[in-house]
């Protein structure tokens, strides 16, 4: 049986609002990086998308997978039992536990800011999420890292490539966001 909740009450709870302040989150992430650098290596995420691709492709079409030197090099030994992959597996695990522990597990298809600009059509949002995800990982692999590997880890190591990547990322992201969501705030 469905409870009779007015629709407007559901809206503000669609996104998971932060419960940790920016400084606590920032110090925490900085400490995770320091521990990772001290014990193993800097943190990174995007290469593991290639690893999963490689391992899956190697399962179905081993010849095709082996032909790509990039896949063979990144997904060394065609295995997921590595420190790097388990680090990435830990991210959704930790996020799930955090969301559950703070009762902030919320589901929705269309995010608030997207809805304001492009309406509540879920198909629209999902198609563009796919396109965006494609660009995100294409760009990350092209540049050799993502927000974790380049920005957090790379900047902390004073890597010049990471400074250049982060600057390009923010300039492009800020321009795209301005163009994409420009009417979001003023719309009633």
């Amino acid at each position: 049986m469905k409870k009779n909740i007015p629709n407007r009450l559901e809206a503000p709870h669609e996104e998971s609002n932060p419960v940790l302040s920016w400084w606590a989150g920032g110090i925490g992430i900085g400490l995770v990086l320091i521990v990772a650098v001290g014990l193993v290596q800097p943190i990174g995420v995007s290469a593991q998308y290639v690893v999963l691709d490689g391992v899956l492709l190697h399962q179905v079409l081993p010849d095709v997978a082996s032909r790509s030197s990039y896949l063979a090099k990144t997904a060394q030994g065609w295995t997921l039992a590595t420190y790097e992959f388990f680090f990435v597996l830990g991210i959704p695990l930790g996020a799930l536990l955090a969301a559950m522990a703070t009762t902030r597990f919320r589901t929705r298809v269309v995010p608030v800011e997207w809805k304001k600009r492009f309406g509540s059509n879920p198909g629209n949002r999902l198609v563009w999420s796919f396109v965006g995800g494609f660009l995100l990982l294409f760009g990350a692999r092209f540049g050799g890292g993502c927000t974790s590997g380049h920005m957090i880890s790379g900047m902390s190591q004073l890597a010049i490539s990471s400074v250049v990547f982060s600057a390009a990322l923010f300039i492009s992201g800020i321009i795209t966001a301005r163009v994409l969501y420009r009417d979001g705030a003023s719309r009633c």
């Binding site: 995420v45 990435v88 991210i91 965006g132 990547f165 390009a168």
Partner: peptide
């Protein structure tokens, strides 16, 4: 690469790591 990444970042509102976190908190 950074330019391409930035477009994807603004479109999705996620980066490769936070997308995985958002997956786990129930965001299709």
């Amino acid at each position: 690469a950074g330019g391409i990444f930035g477009v994807g970042f603004a479109l999705t509102g996620y980066c490769p790591g936070t997308a995985l976190a958002a997956c786990a908190e129930g965001k299709p």
